[in-house]
Design a protein around this nucleic acid. Structure first.
Ligand SMILES: [Mn+2]
Ligand SMILES: [Mn+2]
Ligand SMILES: [Zn+2]
Ligand SMILES: [Zn+2]
Lengths: 121, 121
DNA sequence: ATATATATAGTAATGATTCCTATTACTTAA
DNA sequence: TTAAGTAATAGGAATCATTACTATATATAT
């Protein structure tokens, strides 16, 4: 994967937010710095950055969301405002139980807790 | 929601499999009994059955999958063969901790454990 | 049996994502 | 410092899941 200004910019955009943005949001931000970057380029680089382990992708729902935080963690999604926030859940014990009870080797854990965030009391 | 032969058939198709099928798979099965049922009808009824709590929908990945089992449970997805199987994870304790630590009311828990199933040893 | 409203089939539209291709721009080695 | 060689890009077309539209059909209450 050789250097490109576009990929660096896309990575910077993702690193600058905690909102778990969509590809289109990243595209719009990137265009502010590089007026004619294309949406295809954004998608291609998001895939490459994901494959390289430099970002994470969250595939729940009808649109993928991207995350600069590659340390394993899980998410709370508010069904009222749509905000997605981080939560740490230790999953070593769960993985071990799944291995024992189902003979299933867990590589990746995806938990989404849908509910109402503290902004709506 | 008034009776229709199409909705009954769609529900029957879902109840007859443990594969967590997609809308298109359900459509193809349904056509075997009702040759000109339309895909739009399948989608509309899947939504209605979901809203009525008669089936569940799994929204991980790029296609929704449907589940006759409405008792809360979670899923293992094999990245080799794509098979999706059920797993029971007690989540009451997790929900309580999320409430205390994040002031977030969890309504729905979606966990997917991606890995390798016992068919590939 | 009739009226009313809901559901359907068939088709068009949408929206996210992927694919295609001529051109551009990193990178490496003379 | 050039000049390949090749990976990456912009722009646009294509794909695929899902949703919207609409004229017709059907369920259900009276
Ligand atoms: Mn996160
Ligand atoms: Mn299930
Ligand atoms: Zn909220
Ligand atoms: Zn498998």
């Amino acid at each position: 994967m050789r250097y490109s200004r576009q990929r660096e910019l896309i990575h910077e955009v993702i690193k600058a937010t905690n909102t778990h943005p969509t590809a289109n949001w990243i595209y719009k931000q990137a265009r502010k710095k590089l007026a004619n970057i294309s949406l295809g380029t954004v998608y291609r680089n998001l895939d490459q950055l994901t494959d390289a382990g430099m970002i994470n992708v969250i595939t729940e729902g009808n649109m993928s969301r991207y995350d600069w935080n590659v340390i394993p963690h899980q998410h709370l999604r508010c069904s009222v405002c749509g905000k997605m926030s981080d939560i740490e859940i230790p999953d070593g014990e769960i993985k071990e139980k799944i291995k024992q009870n189902h003979q299933f080797d867990v590589e990746k854990v995806e938990m989404i807790f849908v509910g109402t965030c503290s902004d709506h009391n």
